[in-house]
């Protein structure tokens, strides 16, 4: 554990909490892609199958449980409790375009052709593209509430901080994981355009609005 990794985890946690609080306090999930949230829930389930078989630390286990509960809570709020506010007309990204390639790739490129390992690899590939339905939704409506953009910024920062963590671990511990690193870079790159808009607009008090 190093400071970059810890900051990444905290950024991830903050993103998840921002989203839950936004939905809970406004009693609305307008502008949020339920499809991205389903993909994140699937990601966590596939990755944390080792929760009871591979003990790492209290921190690790607690965080896994928190991420799982929070992602299921978000999906519950969107599809059950505040279903009426869910903007499904704008949430039209086809999930099979992300899930099927992630399944195929995880069967072909993995560290070890074993059940838990393939599920882990699938979760890494799926997470790297899970935000696409959300970004697609923002581009379709042409704007995002500032709270939604804070959420996206925290979520993007998480993977960017993980990259710094991997560079640090490579030099300090000789540790590297090619699958996680390459997928993590893809995931971070997807946020670049958004980061640019966030810094040039949202931080200056303007609404995130895409150029017409």
């Amino acid at each position: 554990m190093n400071v970059f990794r810890l900051s990444g985890d905290v950024a991830h946690l903050i993103a998840i909490i921002i989203l839950l609080l936004k939905i809970w306090t406004s009693r609305s999930c307008a502008g949020i892609s339920g499809k991205s949230q389903i993909l994140f829930a699937v990601t966590f389930v596939a990755r944390y199958l080792d929760l009871f078989t591979n003990y790492v630390s209290i921190y690790n286990s607690v965080m896994k449980i928190v991420y799982l509960l929070a992602s299921f809570g978000t999906v519950y709020l969107m599809y059950m409790k505040f279903k009426a506010t869910y903007d499904h007309n704008h949430d039209t990204f086809r999930l099979e375009f992300l899930i099927l390639p992630a399944i195929a790739l995880s069967l072909i490129i993995n560290h070890d052709f074993a059940v838990i390992e393939v599920f882990w690899t699938f979760s890494i590939y799926l997470e790297s593209v899970a935000i696409l339905p959300q970004l697609f939704m923002v581009s379709k409506t042409g704007e995002a509430e500032s709270i939604t953009s804070h959420y996206l910024f925290a979520l993007g920062s998480y993977r960017a901080l993980y990259i710094v963590n991997w560079i640090y671990r490579y030099y300090m511990e000789g540790f590297y994981d090619m699958i996680a690193t390459l997928a993590g870079i893809v995931q971070t790159v997807l946020y670049c355009d958004f980061f640019y808009l966030y810094i040039t607009k949202v931080l200056k008090g303007k609404k995130l609005q895409l150029p017409a």
Binding site: N54, V56, H111, E117, W120
Partner: peptide, 10 residues
Amino acid sequence: IAAQFGKDEL
């Protein structure tokens, strides 16, 4: 080390 597949990370 091509380590323990990053399983200590979240």
